[in-house]
Amino acid sequence: MVPEIYYITLSAILFTMGALGVLARRNALIIFMSVELMLNAANLAFVSFANTFQQLDGQIIVFFVIAVAAAEVAVGLALIVAIFRSKHSIDVDQMSNLKG
C-alpha cells in the first residue's frame, strides 16, 4: 500500500508542470495539453483521496471532470480552428489585440 502522500506529491508535481506549460509555451495546442495535464493531476489527487477515505464521491467527481474535459476540448479545439482560420497562426502571443 503506497502512502497517500506520495500520490498527492506526484499530483502536485504534475499540476505544477502543467501550469508551467500553460505559462511557458506559445503554442495554443500545447497550452491546451498542459491544461489537460493539470486536470489529470487533480483527478489523481481525487482518486487517491477516495481510496484513502473509502468514499465513492471522489471517483464520481473524476468521472464528471472527464466528461467536462471532453466538452472543453471539443469547444476549445473548435475555437483554435476558428482562430487559425482568421489569423493563420495558433501562437497565443499574436492574439494580443486587447492590449491596453
Binding site: V2, F32, E36, S48, N51, Q59, V62, I66, A70, V73
Partner: peptide
C-alpha cells in the same frame, strides 16, 4: 492501483483515446 478500475478505463478510452486523437 488505487482501486478505481472504471475511472482507469474511462481515462484510457476518453482521454488517451478520444481526446488525444482529437488533438
Amino acid at each position: 492501483l488505487l482501486g478505481a478500475p472504471f475511472i482507469a478505463m474511462a481515462q484510457i478510452t476518453v482521454y488517451a483515446g478520444a481526446i488525444m486523437v482529437l488533438f
